[in-house]
Amino acid sequence: MIENLFKIPEHVAIIMDGNGRWAKMRGLDRVYGHREGVKTVERTIKFAKKVGIKYITLFAFSTENWQRPIEEVNAIMQLLVEYIHEKLPFLKENDIKLLFMGRKEGLWDSVLEAMKKAEDETKNCSSLIVIIGLNYSGKAEIVDAVNKILKSNVEKIDEESFRNYLYLPEIPDPDLLIRTSGEKRISNFILWQLAYTELYFTDVLWPDFDEEEFLKALYDYQSRDRRFGRV
């Protein structure tokens, strides 16, 4: 029950894995799994806002995902554009800000236009901030940060100043990372920011991830003793 939650993470990151396997288990095309996954995104965002989470980061498309069949890549991009345009009124009505992180090179013009529209129209929203990792790679983010530093002619960099060169330096590091589908790896996702993040893995495939499963992750999180290197 939600009433039993007493320690809510400020920032939850999610690797949304298992759409293709979910569809294959049902004899359906992988694209159908991605469509069901989009429905899960919506209910996950609603639940995050309901319990008081302030930031939620969703890994939607990695730089490695370009290696998938072109039909699947095209379907994912089209789904993203459709979702943004369809759900933008909902986001604004519920005071939800939408941000994107990742490299823009290679993305469709229609995707870039939808991203800009969403960020512009939700920039004053603040009750929940949703970050979408799109064409994203943790290694690429660090490399891009280093290249920015080289161009800036800064004489000295420490950990705090380094984060100023990341894609979204103003966003706090995740308290909790959830990965669905049973895989137990972080797959090149926000590598710098995950240094002290609590990790939670579930066998549930992303389209089946519901409020009950989210609660299980939150209950597990509130049982952790986060010492950050201290005794």
Rank of each mutant, 00 (worst) to 15 (best):
I131M: 10
M25A: 14
L98E: 04
G229C: 07
N74F: 10
S223C: 13
Y136S: 06
N65M: 04
N188Q: 12
F47K: 06
D225Q: 15
I84G: 13
W22V: 05
N164Y: 08
A217Q: 05
V204E: 12
N164Q: 15
N4L: 09
E183Q: 15
M115F: 07
W192T: 03
L215V: 06
Q222T: 02
M77T: 08
S161A: 03
G18M: 09
G20T: 05
L205N: 04
K139D: 10
I190D: 02
Y167Q: 03
L194R: 02
K50L: 13
T202N: 07
T57Y: 04
D208E: 15
R185K: 14
L168Y: 01
P69N: 07
E72G: 02
L150R: 05
M101H: 00
Q67R: 12
I190R: 01
N164V: 02
D175Q: 00
Y200C: 04
P174W: 00
E93Q: 12
E64A: 13
D144L: 02
T40I: 09
C125S: 15
K50S: 11
L99I: 00
P9Q: 02
L99K: 07
V12N: 07
R227Q: 15
K50H: 09
E170P: 00
A145Q: 03
D220K: 08
E159R: 14
I149G: 03
V111N: 07
K49P: 00
I76P: 02
L168V: 03
V73R: 07
K148Q: 12
T57E: 07
E36D: 15
D95N: 15
F162G: 01
H85K: 15
I142M: 14
D175C: 00
T180I: 14
K39V: 08
E198M: 06
V51M: 03
L194I: 07
S127H: 01
A114S: 13
L150K: 09
G27R: 05
L98V: 10
L215Q: 07
K156Q: 08
K151Y: 01
